[in-house]
Amino acid sequence: MSEKEKEPMFSAKIWKLLTSPFNQNNPITVQILGICSALAVTAKLKPAFVMALSVTIVTACSSFIISLIRKSIPSRIRIIVQLVVVAALVILVDQVLKAFVYDVSKQLSVFVGLIITNCIIMGRIEAFALGNKPWASFVDGAGNGLGYGMILIILGFFRELLGAGTLWGYQVIPDSWYVANGGFYSNNGLMLLPPMALICVGIIIWIQRSRNKSLIEK
């Protein structure tokens, strides 16, 4: 914390914090963090989107708050303090969702609560926010949340499109294509089942690492 010079709001360093999670540092496909529960809500695009947004807000805000109070936290109860801050933010998000987007909050059910134990959040707090300034921590949290959300949205998009023929609840595959109406197409119900989310993540990892050889594990 010795550097005194004022950084611009979006210096190259800050910008990198925001963008690197989208590709070579993606929380899901590269860091393998926070896969946990959030995948369960990717059967449809809308809940996936709300979940992505919620995770981003919680990650960014908790990094920001922890970074603000980082010098005062006693190291012995560090984990508890972090959990309390994260849990409080998640409760706020949950209450707001219940009040303003009730039908989505019903679909997310317990998975909102599980944001608390999402490893990305604790991971970013431990790895970054405890040693960096609030603004940088906020951007780092937001970047990771967005990188995470991007995968959720990709999954939600393909699973809903291929599994139910809809997007955001609207029918996009023409009705006349369906076998029932004399067409050739039927929805792949398998896409909607939980295991397909994992297989899809596997495929995303495959594509990403084929293009970016430096990420390949030995």
Binding site: T29, I32, L193, P194, P195, M196, A197, L198, I199, V201, G202, I203, I205, W206, I207, R209, S210, K213, I216, E217, K218
Partner: peptide, 18 residues
């Protein structure tokens, strides 16, 4: 090679889930 480690683990978990 691109599936080594995490990738294949995800796919395996999915297959076990099925």
């Amino acid at each position: 090679p691109a599936l080594k480690g995490a990738g294949i683990t995800f796919i395996l978990t999915g297959l076990m889930g099925i």
